[in-house]
Amino acid sequence: MSSDRVIPGLAARATTVAAARSLGAELYYPHELTPLARPERFHFTAVAARLGAVTAGLLSYSSSIRIDTEPYLTSFQMNVPLRGQLRTSVGERRVDATRARAAVYGPDVPTAISGWEQPCVMLAVKMDRALVEARVAAERGPGSAERFAPELDVHAGAGAAWIASVRMLIATVQRVPDLDEGLAEHLAGRCIDGFVLAALGREPEPRAPAADAAIVDRVREAIVYTRGPALTLGAMADYAGVCGRSVQLAFREVLGTTPMRVQREERLRRVRAELNAGDPRCDTVAAVARRHGFLHLGRFSGLYRERFGEAPSCTLAGSGRAGATAHG
Score class of each variant (00 low, 15 high):
residue 140 R to M: 13
residue 4 D to I: 13
residue 9 G to N: 12
residue 4 D to N: 15
residue 313 S to E: 10
residue 148 F to D: 13
residue 144 S to H: 15
residue 128 D to N: 10
residue 13 R to E: 15
residue 195 F to L: 15
residue 260 M to V: 13
residue 230 A to H: 02
residue 13 R to H: 09
residue 297 L to R: 04
residue 17 V to H: 06
residue 168 M to P: 02
residue 263 Q to V: 08
residue 246 S to E: 08
residue 320 G to C: 14
residue 194 G to N: 00
residue 67 I to P: 00
residue 328 G to L: 12
residue 63 S to W: 09
residue 95 V to P: 00
residue 229 P to E: 08
residue 182 G to I: 06
residue 155 H to P: 03
residue 78 M to Q: 01
residue 50 R to H: 06
residue 8 P to M: 09
residue 101 R to A: 06
residue 178 D to H: 14
residue 44 F to S: 03
residue 307 R to H: 10
residue 324 A to I: 07
residue 64 S to F: 11
residue 105 Y to S: 04
residue 67 I to F: 02
residue 144 S to W: 09
residue 288 V to T: 12
residue 48 A to H: 00
residue 263 Q to C: 08
residue 326 A to I: 09
residue 20 A to F: 03
residue 260 M to L: 12
residue 185 E to F: 12
residue 233 L to D: 09
residue 51 L to K: 04
residue 224 V to S: 00
residue 61 Y to F: 15
residue 141 G to R: 12
residue 118 Q to H: 05
residue 86 L to P: 00
residue 260 M to A: 09
residue 247 V to L: 07
residue 40 E to G: 02
residue 24 G to D: 01
residue 255 L to Q: 10
residue 217 D to M: 07
residue 58 L to M: 04
residue 76 F to D: 00
residue 19 A to P: 01
residue 30 P to D: 05
residue 251 F to K: 01
residue 258 T to Q: 05
residue 251 F to I: 01
residue 273 A to F: 14
residue 281 R to M: 13
residue 307 R to Y: 08
residue 63 S to I: 09
residue 191 C to Q: 13
residue 294 F to N: 05
residue 71 P to V: 03
residue 187 L to P: 00
residue 7 I to T: 12
residue 141 G to N: 11
residue 19 A to C: 12
residue 95 V to M: 11
residue 107 P to D: 07
residue 290 R to H: 06
residue 303 L to V: 03
residue 220 R to Q: 13
residue 253 E to V: 05
residue 188 A to K: 10
residue 10 L to S: 11
residue 183 L to Y: 03
